[in-house]
Design a protein around this nucleic acid. Structure first.
Lengths: 360, 360
DNA sequence: CATTCTAGTCAGGGCTGTTGCCTAGATAGG
DNA sequence: CCTATCTAGGCAACAGCCCTGACTAGAATG
């Protein structure tokens, strides 16, 4: 008997998923949509309404549909819950409140000074989250956070790695957001979220991020891989070919080419973009070494290059990779829209829906 | 009603799994083992017996158990099917027939000459498989094959990569074995299978294979990652630090150190193992570059070093990795037993069990 | 030989879902 | 304005799966 209720919860889950997709349906529509009988649909709606997950919207089928009896439209209860999506970048913090349909129902931005004043990121995060969740009236079921720094997988804290620009500053998003959220706080770095947004492309690809910082995301078998500590893709110390063909860590290439900001560990993007052909070729060769490592260890179907300067040098990179024994297509990322925010939103929505359908 | 039968098939699957684990059980034992009622257990056994998957062994509970009525022992039918496990290495082909309990019920070996005469590997494979499957009397439900060469994920064929020793020779195991097998033929390289055998260690680790050929396996989130074409871990062309600190492909390091066999692309293991400290340090540095790439792109919890010469140089490798910004424990593989065959057996058994429980 | 104990079966019932039929309630058309 | 028509929803009957509790079968113990 204990497994008997499994099938009922499956029915309820189907009903909820259908309502998430179609917003409002009559019981008859639910039955045909899901492929169950009308009495079963009616029973499920009754149960879900009793639990407060589904309500009669009061709307009735418009007469235009035909002649028959009017049906009652049911929809998810207006207080099923929302998700918080947050992007923490050096330019500022963006927070959004997402409803169960994936709509952004609130949006807040807080700028951050550069270089970051200690604790300013925390304040900005606090403020943006507070603004977005003010007078929400619904449970905040989870938060998904992007940070422009490496993230410890176990704790969700930002970690400072040697020689990497620490863009956002020391921060513990979980601790800050936990009081606002009645559920999980998921934190990962921006590159991984951007890769998730691009993930429709294929099941095995690599997103190479080349901007002020260096990073990459590896999508393998359809999932963004994070590794044991969450530091997959922190490629600053990967050995590659530097000027003169010497093997040096990737980030050192930029030091030797005088392409790093003197006051920080970040790469000077402006200077890189205006540099001469020889410098660009040297950078291309260094990136080529990174690509060789990615091909050897991740075997992607495609390599997507993004970041502030990556797409501009995609030809130089391609010139290197074309000569390699195992060649993989390299293309610039579509810079349309905000890939990081898209990835965060997608994750937040899918998790929110799972949470709501799960506790059956 | 269509989903009603789902729960019944779940029950049947539980019964089958219990019989796979315990070999023989009475209906009452099944009930308590699985946590279902006696009538349900009886019904399930009746259904499975009708389908020919389960039989009354004729054995009865020995009187020693107590006073009560004797019970009938049921077990999986003797013809539920077997799996074929094959390891194709330069030394020869090993084929095994595995029953549903994971026992090796037949074993055959066919040597291969070195260097491999074309088509000899195919003949050896054919012969070993034929011997093991002769007079089997049961359906061969699948085959799992290891080959000591890179394997194309889509086709299962061995692929010759530039500069890698082609140990086994051109071979299409799927084509050869398909006539013997009434199901899937799974092919992967030996390093990946060895890693699968070691996979109890942790969910994220890397198995670095350093022998005549160079390879590695990446286990991420508990699964061996194969990549788009199945060539994850083919590290011969990964850029690393060669003698004099120049960035060259990993395999070229051995060329420059005169550690490759003149007549082939393989590494001269004997000479490497008897080389001076300077050479070993140079090799250690080169491996250190590979480890840096693995850490950057896979972020393993641990790096396991195996292969003919890897474990002997583990101290030299550790000396390099200890200096890296992100350090990961490096240890030599436990060379006890046959890790490749263990991994192949494990995969074959788990797939065989899935196949038998699945078609409910 | 009676007692005791356990495997297996049977009857009854609960829960889930389905089919088929009916009612409610609205439109469309003469 | 009234009737035919058409659809949403409800009701009753039924089937499948499982469970509980009681019962039978069959052996060892003392």
């Amino acid at each position: 008997m204990p497994s008997q209720e499994l099938i009922r919860s499956l029915t309820d889950e189907h009903v909820l998923r259908a309502l998430m997709q179609h917003r409002r349906l009559t019981r008859a529509e639910l039955a045909t949509e899901i492929g169950i009988s009308k009495p079963t649909a009616g029973e499920s709606v009754r149960r879900l309404a009793e639990r407060g997950l589904v309500t009669d919207t009061g709307e009735r089928t418009p007469g235009g549909r035909g002649r028959g009896r009017v049906g009652s439209y049911y929809a998810l209860a207006p207080d099923v819950g929302v998700a918080l999506a947050v992007v923490i970048a050096p330019e500022g913090v963006v927070a959004e409140r997402l409803d169960i349909y994936g709509n952004t129902v609130a949006h807040a931005v807080r700028p951050i000074d550069r270089p970051t004043r200690p604790s300013q990121a925390a304040e900005a995060l606090q403020a943006a989250a507070g603004e977005v969740l003010a007078a929400c009236g619904q449970p905040v079921r989870l938060a998904v956070v992007s940070a422009a720094d490496p993230v410890d997988r176990a704790t969700g804290r930002l970690v400072q790695l040697p020689d990497s620009p620490f863009l956002v500053g020391d921060l513990d998003p979980v601790a800050i957001l936990a009081p606002h959220v009645a559920g999980t706080v998921v934190v990962d770095n921006d590159v991984n979220w951007a890769a998730r947004a691009e993930s429709g492309t294929g099941d095995d690809f690599c997103y190479l991020f080349l901007g002020e910082g260096l990073g990459c995301a590896i999508v393998s078998d359809g999932e963004v891989r994070r590794g044991h500590t969450g530091l997959v893709g922190e490629i600053a110390h990967l050995l590659t070919a530097g000027p003169g063909g010497r093997a040096i860590p990737f980030i050192e290439v930029f030091t030797e080419l005088s392409l790093r900001r003197p006051d920080s560990t970040a790469i000077n993007v402006e200077r890189l973009l205006t540099s001469d052909a020889g410098t660009r070729a040297a950078v291309g060769e260094a990136v080529g070494g990174v690509v060789a490592a990615v091909i050897a260890l991740a075997d992607p179907q495609e390599i997507v290059v993004g970041g502030a300067w990556g797409p501009a040098l995609v030809d130089d990179i391609r010139a290197q990779t074309a000569r390699m024994p195992r060649s993989v297509p390299v293309r610039a990322a579509d810079l349309t829209g905000e890939p990081v925010l898209s990835g965060v939103r997608a994750e937040a929505l899918s998790r929110l829906r799972s949470v709501i359908t799960a506790n059956s």
